[in-house]
């Protein structure tokens, strides 16, 4: 359902057969191209999860794309500062639909240990919509792997028509410009 311009709810007439949506979701969840947006410490655990011991590639997350324009999944790993926030938003906008975001680590979840800093964006969900939050400081590589599995479940259960039609309404508004401090 979407809310149209007059504020009325409209139920969609388009219905995808279950097998088609299953196939589309299944193929998408097992071929995620993960854009490496490692900012800080979490990026090291992110790299460790791609290494032979934890091996993120067995979940289908290969290869690492050369640019955001080819990526499906953005993992924001690390603290998002106010100076970096516009770049994060720009990179997110460069990704084509359907795109997913995993927020890895407590800094990008909610500001983390820098909750009282004057130049940190308290959570990347203030700028872009997040699908899965992986807690930890830093999360273990197994934690990131679990986060990706949860995302894959989410993708599997996605309702494709709803996602494609009502999507624009789901992006949260930017809450605050990120300038916190200096009152």
């Amino acid at each position: 359902m979407t809310i149209d311009g007059d504020g009325r709810e409209r139920v969609h007439r388009v219905k995808l057969p279950k097998s088609v949506s299953f196939l589309l979701n299944w193929s998408r969840k097992y071929s995620l191209w993960m854009f490496q947006f490692g900012l800080a410490c979490c990026s090291i655990e992110f790299i460790a999860s791609a290494m032979p011991k934890h091996d993120i590639m067995r979940l289908g997350v290969i290869p690492f794309p050369a640019s955001p324009r080819q990526a499906d999944l953005m993992v924001v790993a690390g603290t998002v500062t106010d100076k970096m926030a516009p770049a994060v938003k720009r990179v997110y906008e460069q990704m084509p639909e359907p795109k997913y975001v995993i927020s890895m680590g407590s800094c990008s979840n909610c500001g983390g240990p820098y909750w009282d800093s004057y130049c940190v964006t308290k959570g990347v969900d203030q700028i872009i919509p997040v699908d899965v939050y992986v807690p930890g400081c830093p999360p273990r590589p197994e934690g990131l792997l679990y986060g990706i599995v949860r995302l894959q479940n989410k993708i599997q259960n996605e309702n494709i028509p709803e996602r494609w039609s009502g999507h624009a309404a789901k992006i949260p508004q930017i809450m605050g410009t990120g300038r916190s401090g200096g009152i």
Partner: peptide, 17 residues
């Protein structure tokens, strides 16, 4: 960032949070 106002390390600059 360019538009930051204030001098953060002065004692008079209080952390908003």
């Amino acid at each position: 960032p360019e538009d930051f106002e204030g001098y953060p390390l002065r004692r008079s600059f209080k952390l908003a949070s």
